[in-house]
């Protein structure tokens, strides 16, 4: 659907909040905490599609809000949002989908955010508050000026802020210790934080199923590479700031997708021939599948080598 940008509000030097509404004022589909939408950005010849967590109230269909961190070294999606999108613009926004939902059976929810990883939890806190479910949230940031999440978080006793510059680093083991049976923990942030939580959980005997995580994957830029599509009888060059999936779309080749971040498995594509090394960046294929080089996730993964032939 095409939505109108109703407001653009800087939250910190690097993070800006965008609010989208239906041009006719119609209600938008509601969603669950942790859901994302894919925003379409027409950029010259191509359409960029980036996934952003919704930070507005899941029970409020009057608009969608996202918070975007400017990544100067990224492929340009966040820069586009920061530099080229203004109030009143119309942008394509997909229906909400949730790959980082709450386990509603949990006796308690422990939410741990690092940096811009706070975004999915903003909507989850609203959902948990409305459902009157017990939770605590830990928000970690390097400095107070970078902590854009502070502007989004409610003033509640369950919300704990850890600013490392102020000597207030979060201790994952302390957060996970002594939690009641049936607690679920969710981490969203840099890979290091996710790994530290998983590590602390393992040491404390937490079962894997109670430790959830989302590392926000944007398709990484890289060297250009060539790929041959057997069914379409096409050979393409994937540009340095383009994902393989975007290159497929630009060539008019149909490939299904949902998350565009290496998580949902929708775009999984069979590799018919590979002379070189696939740079697997996804969280979908397991280690054996990655090593076999017979499948690739075009949304985030790239290739270096002689030739790559896909079943597309």
């Amino acid at each position: 659907m095409m939505l109108r940008v109703a407001s653009v509000e800087p939250l910190s030097p690097l993070v800006t909040k965008f609010r989208f509404v239906h041009p006719d004022g119609a209600a938008l589909p509601l969603f669950s905490g942790g859901a994302h939408v894919v925003v379409e950005m027409p950029d010259g010849e191509m359409i960029r599609r980036n996934a952003y967590s919704l930070v507005s109230d899941p029970m409020d269909g009057s608009g969608y809000e996202i918070a975007v961190r400017r990544e100067d070294l990224g492929r340009g999606g966040s820069l586009y949002m920061h530099t080229r999108v203004a109030e009143g613009d119309l942008l394509g926004v997909g229906a909400p989908a949730n790959l980082f939902g709450l386990d509603l059976r949990a006796r308690k929810h422990v939410l741990v955010a690092g940096g811009i990883g706070i975004t999915p939890f903003i909507a989850q806190i609203r959902q948990l508050t409305r459902l009157q479910l017990p939770f605590e949230l830990h928000y970690c940031a390097r400095s107070r000026s970078e902590a854009a999440g502070l502007a989004l978080l409610p003033d509640l006793p369950q919300v704990h802020v850890h600013i490392s510059d102020e000597g207030n680093r979060m201790d994952p083991a302390e957060v996970l210790s002594g939690q009641p049976l049936g607690t679920h923990a969710y981490t969203c942030g840099p890979e290091g934080l996710v790994a530290a939580m998983a590590d602390a959980g393992a040491r404390l005997g937490w079962p894997e199923a109670a430790l959830h995580s989302e590392t926000f994957l944007a398709p990484p830029p890289g060297k250009p590479f060539r790929v041959t599509l057997a069914r379409s009888a096409l050979t393409l060059t994937v540009g340095p700031d383009q994902s393989l999936l975007e290159a497929l779309e630009a060539a008019g080749v149909d490939a299904p997708w949902l998350c565009r971040g290496g998580v949902c498995g929708q775009c999984e594509t069979a590799v018919l021939s590979c002379h070189g090394r696939i740079e697997h960046h996804d969280h979908w294929l397991d280690d054996d599948e990655k090593a076999a080089q017979t499948k690739i996730m075009p949304c985030v993964s790239r290739f270096q080598g002689q030739d790559l032939i896909l079943d597309r």
Binding site: P29, F31, S32, P58, M59, P96, N98, L104, Q127
Partner: peptide, 8 residues
Amino acid sequence: FYRLPRSN
């Protein structure tokens, strides 16, 4: 099969 909004 329908996806439900609030509960996912």
